[in-house]
Each structure stands twice: as structure tokens, then as C-alpha cells.
Design a protein around this nucleic acid. Structure first.
Lengths: 323, 323
DNA sequence: TCCCTTGCGGACAGATCTTGTCCGCAAGGC
DNA sequence: GCCTTGCGGACAAGATCTGTCCGCAAGGGA
């Protein structure tokens, strides 16, 4: 890559992420850090406001609000567009299949000729299989929530809770998160004076209250880890605590990708696992997976849970042992 | 003015007016016409579509940019682009997080002004949480496979099977499919004279054999249903057949999102379910879910499966009933 | 307080690239 | 036919760029 191309690429890198370290940029661009510094200098001399901060958490960032030259997509970005739209067609957001495909077709038209075959190949030969049973969220709801997050506007919506009927909420939206095809809104609820996680598919009648709020600091490193921690430690109605005769690492590995559950080691060869869920049935899968690992003891379980899982166990035993 | 700065200036000049002659550009930039030609060439090599026309009314013009509204996406399509790229950042394809975000930032620039806030809102306030444990596939591999699918080119690659080590395959690729964050290649394997499904994350060293083939007709309605049917009906080592005292619809609903399993109604209130998997442990979750629904009878099970699930059942019963 | 990490910039040598000036060619309009 | 325009090869002088040194300043953590 020659120098002007590298400058354009540097600009696009700086634009795509808040902060980059010189080392990262040098790796991306395939040059030394010294050259990165020189390139940053060049951008500055071209009136692009690139700030650099020193220290351990230092790095470069492009302050927003400047008009950049029309940057072209590179190969990986074109592939990302195609894969993203193919994937978006697969589920999670209602009506996205058609929109994604038509957007892809239009994007293909404005792509540089070199990338067009790539895009066409992916869009014609890749297909997402929609997962049945994933709750669909409306793109309009997501759009409004996203706008309110960005503008720090109070947002109001009806929320169909797990048990109770729909209630009207007025919250300070913080971030939208997607995990395993589901969309979540992380927001601060002033009425309850606490952070809450809402499932976007249960949100309806969303509207901005047209009232700005000052963003609060999240009691976690970032929104993603807050969500994951909340899931892991959430206390629902029914819960089980088990002591398992297996190393904590083994048990944790069983639940890779499944977020609900806390595993704490007791000693080298045993650990304590805690689950909670709304219904005993939702606990069954995890408990069964534990039971498959080895012997375990129930430290605690709500009566309904114990009865339910015990009943399932009896049914399994009867069906398979007397076969 | 140095070369990179002049290139950016040239880009902005080309954006600002419909048509420029080489002479004008040379004057504006303070260089000779020969250098203008070279700069135009450089822009072209950077994928900027600059056209040049000869003759009296000749000149240079930039076909895309802010001149003509290049991307006439409607609201839903814009949201689809944003959501797709945010989602693509979340997993499945390695290195896509950065590419997706930078692509999104660049697309934002070429959007009509009306849509730009929408896109900016979604890209800044939505975030995908990567799922641990999802195998990563390389965008390059996907790109080659997609191209071979489209061009009907034989493709060769190393495949790490479930048990055996890597083997070199030469297949006729048919379609790429993504399901639950995993990518699959549906292809016809002439050596085995049958259709095969390959997991793309197990494919490496992929290369087109540069040899065209005539596409065969798939023994299914479409690729997606072929894949699902294959998963559902795949005969792995261990299998169970159950007759459940519950309507087929209820049982099917239990497995929403889980594809491995055939449900066939027997009558109004009962149905037959068949599962198969590589290990008895992989059958456990599904069988436990069935057991949670109601009474059932085991019609068939491999001995290991029966012993395994019976054992788990006994363990569950013992742990929860004697609590 | 010390130490590490990060950005910043000078100096220098060698390789690379750029530029201007030739030249001829092709294509379109008068 | 002639002019204008874009296109591109060749070449030499000169500028520029890069990598590798070096030391300095500033911020954050132990």
C-alpha cells in the first residue's frame, strides 16, 4: 500500500473506532509506529483533528464533526457488509429479510467494480436460515430506542413483564445490546432508582419523551459486561444451588454460551453451581447437564423446582431403565 | 502541497463540480497535466470511480460521491444495514468487528442526509455481545467459497472431520448457509457421490480448482430445508425414539430454535419424536425437555443412551426427591 | 516515589517515489 | 481533416518516504 492509500485507510480506521494505539495502527497499516506518527502528523497538517493522549491509556482519536473525504470500502469491509446483511436477514428483527436483501442489492450498485463480484458472490450464495422461536423485534422500535440512547432522551414505552401485564415505563436509555439473536435495552429507571434490562421484543408503543437527561455512569466496566453479569446473577423466582463433584472449569465449560448460572469452585474436584429462572422448567436443562457430569447434591431448591425436576428424573428413569 | 494532500484536494474538487478538464485541475492543484493524470490514476487505483472522456467536451468526473444521491435506501433498509453490521460484529466471522464498524462509518457518509442520524444512532448505541464458544470462520474462506458457489467452480480444501484428522476434499460447492452463528457449506462431493454439509470453521486451505462444473439439482426444495432436514434426520451413532403423550405442536414448540429432532404426530394427543447425536450426552437436553412435557415411552434407544439417560434420571430423582 | 507505557519528534542513510518533460496514440466533436 | 481531450511509456533529476536509532514529556499504576 502506498502512502496516500495508507492515509485514507488511517482515516477510516480512526473513524471506525474511538481510540487506537500507535501500535495497533502500525500493525493494521503494516508500517512502523514512527511512520504512523508521521501519517498522523500529515493528517493534522491536512486539518483533520487527530488528538493524541499519552500515558498508559493513551492513543489517537479523531474528534468528530469533520467532513471526511468519501472513503471507499475495502475487501474485508465489503465482505462484512454482505455477511452482515445476509445474517440480518436470518432473524431477530421483523421484516429485515426483505430490507436486507434489497439494501444489499443497492449497495452492490455503488460498490467499486473490484468489490462488486465479491458482494454479488456472497449475496447470491450465502443464506441465513431463520431460527424459529426467536422473538421478533420491530426495526422501528429499535430505531427510536437507538435515537434516544444517542441523544440522551428519556424514552417511554409499554413493557410486558414476565408475569404482570404491560406497564408504562419512562427510563433513561443507555445502550442497546444484542446477544444470541435477542435484543436488550439497558436503561436507568428513575422510578425504581436502578438500572434495568429490558427485552426489546417486549417493548411496544415506544416514544421519546423529548426530555434530555444527563447520562449516569454505569456500575460496570461496560454495558456488555453489565448485561452478562446481570444474567448470571439474576435472582428469579425459582432457583437451585447444587454442589457438583466436578472441577469448576469442567462445569463452566458445559455452559459456554449459556449465560445464566454462577459457578464457584469449592476445591479441586468440586464446585457450587447456582441457577435461577422464572419457571422450574427453565432450570431443567442446566440441571440435567450438571447431572450428566457426575454426582451432585442439592443444597437448595424451591419446592416446585424440586418436585418438577424430581418428577422429570423419575420419568426418565422409568422410561429408560425399564425399557 | 504534497502528494497526499493534493489527492484529497483533487477528490474534493471532483466532488464539488460535475466535470473538470485536466487543464483546470492542473491549474487548481499547481501541477502539470501529466501529474493530474497520474493523480487521477491513483484515485482510480484506490477504487474511486473517476471517468475520463476524450474529445472537445472531455474531462474528468467522479461518478459516485455526494454528487448524485448514491444510495437511495429507505428507512428500513438503512436500519437493516446498521443492524446487520452491528450483528455481524458480534460473532461468527473472525475480524469482522472492526470491518463491520468501519464499513458502517463509511456507509453513513454516503447515505442521504435524512438517514444519516438513524444510522449514526444505531451504530453508536447498539452493540453485539460476542458469544463465547462460537467457532470463528475466516472471511477469506467465506469469500472464496462464495465465489466458487457463484461461478460453479470446483473448490478444494482441507477438512477437519469430527473424528478423523484433516482430509483434502474436492467438491462442487452449492451454497453457504448460516444457522445459529455457524456457517455451513452445502456441496456435492463427487468422490463420495453424495451431497455433504461441511462446517466452514473446519475448512482450511481453501482454493478454487479453477474447473467449472454443471450444477446438480439438490434433492430438496432448497438448500435451507436440505440443511435442516439433514440435521433433523442425520443418523449419528446414538439415537432415541420416543412416543410422547402430548400434541405434536406442543412438542415442536419445545424445540423452537433447536433443529435436531423429528416430530411426527400419531394422533391428537400424542406424537413420535426421534433424535440422534454423536454422544448420549448430546441427546440428554432434548429428552429431558420431552420428559418435562409429560409421560412418554421409549420406543428405541441405543443401549449406551438408555443407560446414560437412565443414570441421569436416577441421579436427578435421588438428588431432588430425597432432598 | 519509581517505573512503565504511551505519544512526540530530531537525525540520518538508503531506497523509493514523484515530477516534469518529452513523445506518440486513441477517441470524440467541429 | 483538424483540433481538442484523455492516456500512457520513458527517463533523469530531485524530492520524499521509511526504518532505525535516539532522547524527551506526560500520564497512570504500584
Amino acid at each position: 500500500m502506498d502512502m496516500p492509500g495508507r492515509l485514507l485507510r488511517l482515516l477510516s480506521l480512526l473513524q471506525s473506532r474511538r481510540e487506537w494505539s500507535g501500535r495497533e495502527l502500525a500493525d493494521r497499516l503494516g508500517v512502523t509506529e514512527r511512520t504512523v506518527r508521521r501519517d498522523v502528523d500529515r493528517l493534522r497538517s491536512l486539518d483533520y483533528p487527530v488528538t493524541g493522549t499519552t500515558g498508559t491509556a493513551g492513543g489517537y482519536r479523531l474528534v468528530s464533526g469533520t467532513n471526511l473525504p468519501p472513503l471507499q470500502l475495502d475487501d474485508d469491509e465489503a465482505i462484512a457488509v454482505a455477511l452482515g446483511l445476509v445474517g440480518a436477514a436470518g432473524g431477530g428483527v421483523s421484516g429485515m429479510a426483505d430490507s436486507s436483501m434489497s439494501a444489499l442489492a443497492k449497495l452492490e450498485q455503488v460498490m467499486p467494480a473490484r468489490l462488486r463480484p465479491q458482494l454479488a458472490a456472497v449475496s447470491s450464495s450465502a443464506e441465513a436460515i431463520p431460527r424459529p422461536g426467536v422473538p421478533q423485534v420491530s426495526p422501528g422500535v429499535l430505531a427510536v430506542l437507538a435515537r434516544c440512547c444517542r441523544n440522551h432522551e428519556i424514552v417511554a414505552f409499554d413493557y410486558r413483564g414476565r408475569a404482570r401485564g404491560a406497564t408504562r415505563r419512562r427510563v433513561e436509555p443507555h445502550q442497546l445490546l444484542t446477544l444470541a439473536w435477542r435484543w436488550y435495552l439497558l436503561a436507568f429507571d428513575p422510578g425504581r432508582d436502578d438500572w434495568r434490562i429490558f427485552r426489546v421484543d417486549r417493548i411496544s408503543d415506544v416514544a421519546s419523551a423529548l426530555h434530555r437527561f444527563t447520562p449516569r455512569t454505569l456500575p460496570a466496566a461496560d454495558a456488555a459486561s453489565y448485561l452478562v453479569e446481570s444474567f448470571v446473577s439474576a435472582q428469579y423466582r425459582h432457583s437451585v444451588h447444587l454442589t457438583v463433584q466436578a472441577p469448576a472449569a469442567t462445569v463452566s465449560a458445559t455452559f459456554e454460551g449459556v449465560v445464566r448460572g454462577i459457578v464457584e469452585p469449592v476445591d479441586e474436584s468440586s464446585c457450587v453451581v447456582r441457577f435461577s429462572a422464572d419457571t422450574p422448567a427453565m432450570l431443567l436443562t442446566q440441571v440435567a447437564a450438571i447431572a450428566a457430569l457426575g454426582p451432585f447434591v442439592v443444597d437448595h431448591a424451591t419446592p416446585e423446582t424440586a418436585a418438577f425436576i424430581g418428577g422429570v428424573g423419575a420419568r426418565l428413569t422409568q422410561a429408560f431403565v425399564t425399557q
